[in-house]
C-alpha cells in the first residue's frame, strides 16, 4: 500500500493548481494513518529531488506544487509561444514591498512611505490579485486596508512572509551597503 500511497499523493499534487499543503493531503486521505501519509509524502518529495526528473516539487505559499526547472525556461516559452513574461514595474514592486512590510496598511500610508501617490499602482496590484483588501481602518474616513495575498507568495516563490528579511536584517543590509560603498 505504501508505494501506492506515494502514487496517490503524487496524483493529488498533480491535479492541484494551487500549492497543496500536507494538512490538506491528510484531510483528503482520511482513511490512511497520518504517519503513513507523511512518510509517503516525504518519500515522494525526495524522489523528485533527484536529478533525473524535469519536474520538481517545490514548496510555495505553505504548500507543495509541481514546477519545471528554471533552466528549461527558454524551450518552454518557445513551446507556449511566449516571448517574455510580463514583469512588474518598479513602482509596483516598491508598493508591494511597502505593503509586505507594513501590512495591514492604507493607501495614504503607502503613498507616504513611497513619497508618491500610489493609488494607481495599488489598483493594478489589486487587479493582479497580488494584494487584497482586508477591511477598513477605524480612523477618519475609514480608509481601506490592504494586505499581500497568497498569490503574492506564489508569485515570488515565497513559502511565507517570514522568507523575507526582517526589518532588523534589512537595516544590517543597508548598513553593510553603506560601509562597502565607503571603502
Amino acid at each position: 500500500m505504501k508505494a501506492q500511497l506515494k502514487e496517490l499523493i503524487e496524483s493529488l499534487v498533480f491535479v492541484s493548481l494551487e500549492p497543496l499543503s500536507l494538512d490538506k493531503i491528510k484531510e483528503v486521505l482520511e482513511e490512511f494513518p497520518e504517519e503513513e501519509v507523511e512518510d509517503a509524502f516525504l518519500g515522494l518529495v525526495e524522489s523528485y529531488s533527484s536529478n533525473q526528473k524535469g519536474i520538481q516539487i517545490i514548496q510555495s505559499a505553505g504548500g507543495y506544487l509541481f514546477s519545471t526547472k528554471p533552466e528549461y525556461d527558454i524551450w518552454i516559452r518557445r513551446l507556449l509561444q511566449i516571448e517574455r513574461k510580463n514583469k512588474l514595474s518598479p513602482a509596483a514592486l516598491e508598493t508591494l514591498a511597502a505593503v509586505a512590510y507594513h501590512q495591514p496598511i492604507t493607501q495614504a500610508e503607502i503613498s507616504a512611505i513611497r513619497g508618491v501617490d500610489s493609488s494607481h499602482t495599488l489598483r493594478g496590484l489589486l487587479q493582479k490579485r497580488l494584494i487584497k483588501i482586508v477591511g477598513r481602518k477605524k480612523s477618519p474616513g475609514k480608509p481601506l486596508i490592504y494586505r499581500t495575498s497568497e498569490k503574492f507568495l506564489t508569485y515570488f516563490g515565497l513559502n511565507s512572509l517570514k522568507d523575507l528579511p526582517t526589518k532588523e536584517e534589512l537595516e544590517k543590509i543597508l548598513e553593510e551597503e553603506q560601509t562597502s560603498e565607503e571603502e
Binding site: F14, S16, L17, I58, L65, F66, S67, T68, K69, P70, E71, D73, I76, K85, K87, L88, P90, L93, E94, L96, A97, A100, Y101, T154, Y155, F156, G157, L158, L164, P165, L170, I173, L174, E177
Partner: peptide
C-alpha cells in the same frame, strides 16, 4: 532594498513553470 529583492525573486520565479 526590498523591491530589489522582490525583483530578483520575480525573475527567478518567472522561469519556473507551474501548472
Amino acid at each position: 532594498a526590498v523591491s530589489g529583492l522582490l525583483k530578483d525573486k520575480e525573475e527567478e520565479e518567472s522561469q519556473r513553470w507551474k501548472r
